[in-house]
Nucleic acid binder design. Structure first.
Length: 480
RNA sequence: CGGGGUGUAGCGUAGCCUGGUAUCGCGCUUGCUUUGGGAGCAAGAGGCCGGAGGUUCGAAUCCUCUCACCCCGACCA
């Protein structure tokens, strides 16, 4: 058995393996504040790539970025009844606006606010309040806004990237004249997420709709992208909501229509978050650490100079610089690891950090004008040799790596989806410690006996798939 | 909020029962030899033993209080 870079392995202890992958790749660390994490430069670079790619996609759809405040007047939240029910339990509340020295010299809150603020758990409320003033006539519609920001939901059990109290996300908010336009938009954003996840991120996402108990508080319909992790659980990787007139009613989003009468607008909202990074880890990483889809890898190619003695250092470094320049001309993000670590350490470091391609360049490569290439989607010892002229094949290889990750994750997912035809069957399946999703007729799950089984195994209805499964199916799984 | 744990160097730990100079590994620093599958040797630096109080000649160790974190449930992108 070869030594793995990460201990424990996925089979030994999946939860611990996940933490170790993050540490080994230097993505993030826990902070002094429970539930909040420090995203380190390498992890943040992944998020920046996610932002850059997705931001371009929504701008093509006519969405504009804006920024709304972190703090929301407490009373705003209470304007939408379901919304408050959903979020009240996890809101951080600002009650004071300064500190003073207490009797024992310690700082204590002072200056109690007459009306407290909450830290946004999502921004429907404040955006609804603000844009109601922006919208007067049908000519002001549609309005398509997005913001990249942080939000806070006080979580009981945080896990880095997958569930943190503070997280980074984008939240899109759109407003339309008609129900059909808003419904169409919610589905369009679902598809936009689907394309992003399945293409650039190579995630095996399944499109579907949430059952009522899993809906966003205040939504009429919640659409979701569920992906399967390597331990067979489900992860909600993105959501798009058709909000109907719930928030328009609550925040008075009205407009003068083409018929010269007042109408209530229809809204949507949709989001993806830093949870995606957790999803990428849980989907693609292996017992040697992170494996990054090339589209979002901070460095798509890492050049590792192998310098044995000072006399050849200059030639090797010059060769590396030339290769880097050539790759950058091909728009490939390329990094030279010029650290003084030993060669094996550098190689292992970039395996653990999930670089899609490693180029090992030593005297041999220089003298023979070739490249020795290690692919992260292949076993460690397996190497590819290219001539210098074949450099322009590297974009193709990056695409192949992305394809491998996508295919591999789809196969893993499909192997772990089990059709069941009765509640008894479901019970039997999870009683045998099944690691995966069950798919069954939804009507069978609208029953008290299903609720009992769901409770017994911590299962929930993940989504009603939009395509690829029989009508009226629903996925049942454990989830993150 | 229930149930179970843990706090000793940057990280991981031994010591605690039975009080007496702070243990080991990794990492770090310096030097030499190494480097294409996780290097070796040598010499170093680094600690209010989570915090407060108490018992004692003497506390990491015993007693009381307190704080923090982790794991399992309920909640969630």
């Amino acid at each position: 058995m070869a030594k793995t870079a990460i201990t424990p392995t996925r089979n030994q202890d999946f939860a611990e393996w996940y933490q170790q992958v993050i540490i080994a790749a230097d993505l993030a660390e826990n902070s002094p504040v429970r539930g909040c994490m420090v995203i380190k430069p390498y992890g943040y670079a992944i998020w920046e790539n996610i932002q850059r790619i997705f931001d371009a996609k929504i701008k093509k759809l006519g969405v504009e970025n804006a920024y709304f405040p972190l703090l929301i007047p407490l009373e705003f939240l209470s304007k939408e009844a379901e919304h408050i029910d959903g979020f009240a339990k996890e809101c951080a509340v600002i009650t004071h606006h300064r500190l003073k020295k207490g009797p024992d010299g310690k700082l204590v809150p002072d200056g109690e606010l007459q009306s407290p603020y909450i830290i946004r758990p999502t921004s429907e409320a404040i955006i609804g309040n603000v844009i109601s003033k922006w919208i007067n006539t049908y000519r002001d519609l549609p309005l398509k806004l997005n913001q990249w920001c942080n939000v806070m939901r006080w979580e009981m059990r945080p896990r880095m990237f997958l569930r943190t109290s503070e997280f980074l996300w984008q939240e899109g908010h759109t407003v339309f004249e008609t129900e059909s336009e808003a419904r169409e938009d919610a589905l369009k954003m679902l598809n936009t997420y689907y394309d992003f996840m399945t293409q650039e991120l190579a995630l095996p996402a399944i499109k579907g709709e949430k059952t009522p108990e899993e809906r966003f508080p205040g939504a009429k319909n919640t659409y979701t992208l569920e992906t399967m992790t390597q331990d067979g659980k489900a992860l909600q990787a993105g959501t798009s909501h058709y909000l109907g007139q719930s928030f328009s009613n609550a925040f008075n989003i009205k407009f003068l229509g083409r018929d010269n009468a007042q109408h209530t607008a229809y809204t949507t909202s949709w989001g993806i978050s830093t949870r995606l990074i957790g999803g990428i880890i849980m989907t693609h990483a292996d017992d040697d650490g992170l494996v990054l889809p090339p589209a979002i890898a901070p460095h798509q190619v890492v050049i590792i100079p192998l310098i044995h003695d000072a006399s050849t250092a200059n030639q090797i470094n010059a060769y590396c610089a030339d290769v880097q320049q050539a790759l950058e001309n091909l728009d490939i993000r390329t990094h030279i690891d010029a650290t003084e670590n030993s060669a094996p350490n550098k190689i292992w470091k970039w395996i653990k950090k999930g670089a899609p391609i490693r180029l090992e360049i030593g005297l041999k490569e220089v003298s023979e004008s070739k490249l020795t290439l290690g692919r992260r989607d292949k076993p460690k010892p397996e190497k590819t040799f290219l001539t210098l002229k074949q450099l322009n094949e590297i974009p193709i290889i990056l695409k192949q790596i992305e394809d491998t990750l996508r295919q591999r994750s789809i196969v893993t997912r499909d192997c772990c989806i089990q059709a069941v035809n009765s509640i008894n069957h479901l019970d039997e399946l999870f009683n045998r410690d099944f690691k995966g999703w069950a798919v069954m007729n939804k009507d069978l799950t609208d029953t008290p006996v299903f609720a009992e089984i769901a409770q017994k195994y911590s299962l929930s209805r993940r989504c009603i798939p939009q395509e690829g499964y029989p009508q009226n199916s629903v996925f049942i799984a454990k989830s993150y």
